[in-house]
Design a protein around this nucleic acid. Structure first.
Lengths: 154, 154
DNA sequence: TATTGTTATACTCTATAACTATA
DNA sequence: TATAGTTATAGAGTATAACAATA
């Protein structure tokens, strides 16, 4: 009888660990924290780094497009780009043909800074995955991708 | 030459998708959003549900312990528990032997509410995993767990 | 001295709504 | 009418620092 109650308690205690939502949140908290600590010396936040990365990868990308890719609102990007521009990493340039948009381009200083930061981030990822097989690493990325596409099209 | 530049751009554009940090953040954003929508009709946040779950699983757990398990500060739990107590889901009870702590216990109303919410959360998890094999689901949980323990002991 | 619960406070991130200039 | 960028503002979630009671 007392055993029954204890068993129920154990089952319930373990429930949280069985949910992806909870595990994802906890893992994300730790990974974001580690990422933040790596980026801090470069005076960059994860979002700023992601923005810089998108601009590097697709020079001429618009703010609206960056916002869409990052899954945040357009308005949130203004301060982000202001900061990056203030540090001379990206510049806003008018687009012939549509005077509403200002395309984002990396500067040479931005490229140089990005390469340095990129190395630190890669090292972090390697550290986080040091106990993982190549297979596990690939599995995680593919499963997360699948989860994302499944939820995005809802 | 122009091809070279284009190739570099492509490589760089894809970089963000190769990072766990970024993928984890995006996946977490979507999963937390879906979780929030499921909990909203019950007037619970993900943190409140997690707290309730911990109290259900380990009646008598202290606030400090809940904070540790959730990875947040003690101070953040006060409002959380206040809300749960205000709704009659948990109660604070003195502990004989250590008059500093107030143990958290579920009420019968709390148990009843938890069972209802739990069913909704389970349905959500099943929906999110509908295109996944049992193997993939297990792989994700075990990889996330491994990632967590690796980062927690840093 | 250290720990539990608590309060007050501030900060970060993000969303919302409204505006402008363009299309 | 719709879209891009912008601004101002508010809210959620969290951390920090201090305090009283207790260990």
């Amino acid at each position: 009888m007392a055993d029954q109650i204890e068993d129920n308690a154990k089952l319930r205690a373990g429930q949280l660990d069985g949910f992806i939502g909870y595990n994802l949140k906890r893992a994300n908290l730790l990974v974001q924290g580690a990422t933040r600590r790596v980026l801090e010396p470069h005076d960059l936040t994860p979002s700023a780094f992601a923005t810089l990365s998108l601009v590097m990868g697709r020079p001429g990308i618009t703010q609206s497009e960056v916002a869409r890719q990052l899954g945040i609102e357009r308005s949130g990007l203004v301060a982000l780009v202001d900061k990056l521009q203030g540090r001379g990493f990206v510049k806003r340039e008018p687009v012939p043909g549509d005077r509403r948009v200002q395309a984002l381009h990396p500067t040479s200083a931005g490229c140089a800074a990005y390469d340095v930061v990129l190395r630190d981030i890669r090292n972090l990822e390697d550290r986080m995955f040091k106990d993982f097989s190549e297979q596990e690493r690939g599995a995680l990325l593919s499963i997360l991708g699948k989860l994302r596409t499944g939820l995005e099209e809802e």
